[in-house]
Simulated assay, not measured.
Amino acid sequence: MSVYSIKDLEHLSGIKAHTIRIWEQRYDLFSPQRTETNIRFYNDVDLKLILNIAMLKDHGMKISKIVAMPMDLLEEGVRKISIENRSHQDQISALTLAMIDLDEEEFSSLLEESINMLGFEKTMMEIIYPFMHKIGILWMTNSINPAQEHFITHLVRQKLIVATDQAESSNSGPLFLLFLPEGELHELGLLFANFLLRSKGVRTIFFGQTVPIDAIEEVYLKLNPQFIITAMTTAPESKEVPKFVKRLGSKFQNCQVYVTGSRVIGQDLEFPSNVSILNQFDDLIELTQTLTIKQLN
Rank of each mutant, 00 (worst) to 15 (best):
L118C: 10
S64T: 14
E36G: 15
L138G: 03
D46A: 08
V45Q: 13
S238A: 15
G266H: 05
H186S: 04
Q256G: 01
Y4H: 06
M1K: 08
E240A: 13
E112C: 04
L110K: 02
V259T: 13
I216V: 15
G119W: 06
N85L: 04
E187R: 04
W139K: 02
Q33G: 12
I285N: 04
Q295P: 00
V162K: 11
N254Q: 15
H186R: 06
P70V: 12
L291Q: 08
Y258Q: 07
P70T: 11
L178T: 05
L9Y: 01
S31I: 10
I216P: 02
V78K: 01
T164L: 08
E184Q: 13
F179W: 11
E126V: 06
G266T: 11
F179V: 10
H154D: 14
F107P: 02
D46S: 08
G189Q: 10
S114R: 08
S276P: 00
D58S: 14
R21K: 13
N38F: 01
Q148V: 06
Q89S: 13
S273C: 00
I265N: 13
R21G: 02
Q289Y: 10
L291Y: 02
I128T: 09
K65M: 03
L47F: 05
A54E: 06
Y129P: 00
K80H: 11
Q89W: 05
K122N: 14
D90V: 10
K16V: 13
L178M: 15
Q89D: 07
V259S: 06
Q91I: 11
K65V: 14
A231N: 05
T19D: 05
Y220R: 04
W23L: 03
W139H: 03
D103R: 03
N145A: 08
F30V: 09
N116D: 15
T19K: 05
L74P: 08
M1C: 09
I53E: 01
D72G: 00
I229Y: 07
L180P: 02
I63A: 04
S114Q: 12
P236T: 11
F227W: 09
S5Y: 03
M61R: 09
M1Y: 05
K243P: 00
W139R: 04
L223C: 01
V156H: 02
Y220T: 08
V264E: 01
I15P: 01
A17D: 10
H186E: 01
S108E: 14
F120T: 05
K243C: 00
V264H: 05
K246M: 15
E106A: 13
Q226P: 00
T292W: 00
Q209I: 13
S87L: 10
A17E: 09
H186P: 06
V202I: 15
F244W: 13
L29M: 09
V264L: 06
S262P: 00
D282A: 15
K251A: 06
L51V: 10
S169C: 04
R21Y: 07
I229Q: 05
I81G: 03
N142I: 09
N38D: 12
E286N: 15
E76A: 15
S108H: 08
P272C: 09
K159T: 09
Q256V: 12
K200I: 02
I213Y: 11
R198Q: 14
Q295F: 10
P236N: 03
I92P: 01
T96I: 06
S143F: 11
E286K: 15
L180H: 04
L284E: 06
V219E: 02
L49M: 09
I285S: 05
D44L: 07
F131G: 05
E168L: 13
I15A: 03
G136T: 05
Y42L: 03
S238M: 14
